[in-house]
Design a binder for these strands. Sequence first.
DNA 1: ATATTCCCCTGGAAGC
DNA 2: TGCTTCCAGGGGAATA
Length: 284
Amino acid sequence: MTGNKRRMPELPEVETVMRGLVPHLVGRRITAVRATVDRLRLPVQAEILQRFSLRQQVVSLRRRAKFIVVQFGNHSGLLLHLGMTGAFRICPRNEPLRTHDRVVWSLDDGTDWRLTDARRFGSVQICPHLPPGADPPQLAHLGPEPLSDEFSPQYLHALTRGRAGPVKNLIMDQRRVVGVGNIYANEALFRARISPLRAGRRLGKASCIRLVAAIKTVLLDAIEAGGTTISDFRKVDGTEGDFRVEMRVYGKAGEPCPRCADGKRIRRRVQSGRSSFFCTGCQH
DNA sequence: ATATTCCCCTGGAAGC
DNA sequence: TGCTTCCAGGGGAATA
């Protein structure tokens, strides 16, 4: 079965990780950088990474989609992605490297900031020219943030017009709206009582209102739940925050629907190579 | 143009 | 027990 004991870093997790890093990184200066691999999902350009981050001071951090942007003081910065298994850790500089430590930034307070990523689906990119607050050019194609006012029922309705493809693919398309991964796409569609198989063009205005609200709610709930673990993150002992947002359908194939009175079973179906979980009784 | 498939990678679960 | 196979998913390239 599709268990998810370990939560993938979706938008709420990335937001929480970013917030947890702030007190450790902002104001710090980078004294050394090294990589233990040539590439993650993308090549890790160690020399360029060195050239642009050495002696730089971290001014701020922000999240865009599932990326973390680290702003340096000289209009440069880092663009980071955790992929499927990535995590950051702050630890003493003399701590031995762990198996999956991929990139290590040494900081001027004697600590190391390390990216650990077993499956190497993450990425570390340098942004040589990054004005404060600007989006790195690598992110130019991204759609609006799901929690912004720009992501409205009107917006969703407009972009579903003429779409034959399933609505689930649509809300996971980063060009339309960012940050909705497979897990929360399933959960949001369940909350909105919309089948993941439904064609985009068959979404009426009422459905768009429900779906936009469901996406925002499920993400906000998860951020709130993650927020309670930020103190854990700050313990810096490598333990991961455990999100306690209750999944209602994801990974629950065969279990009774938590909403249908007759207890119809949750179905699993593969859509574009990703598992969809839904109830045929209450999602249409 | 849109819609779908494939690939990167590893560890844990399931199967034999 | 131990080996093999399957499977998970983000994102972007490739393909139809």
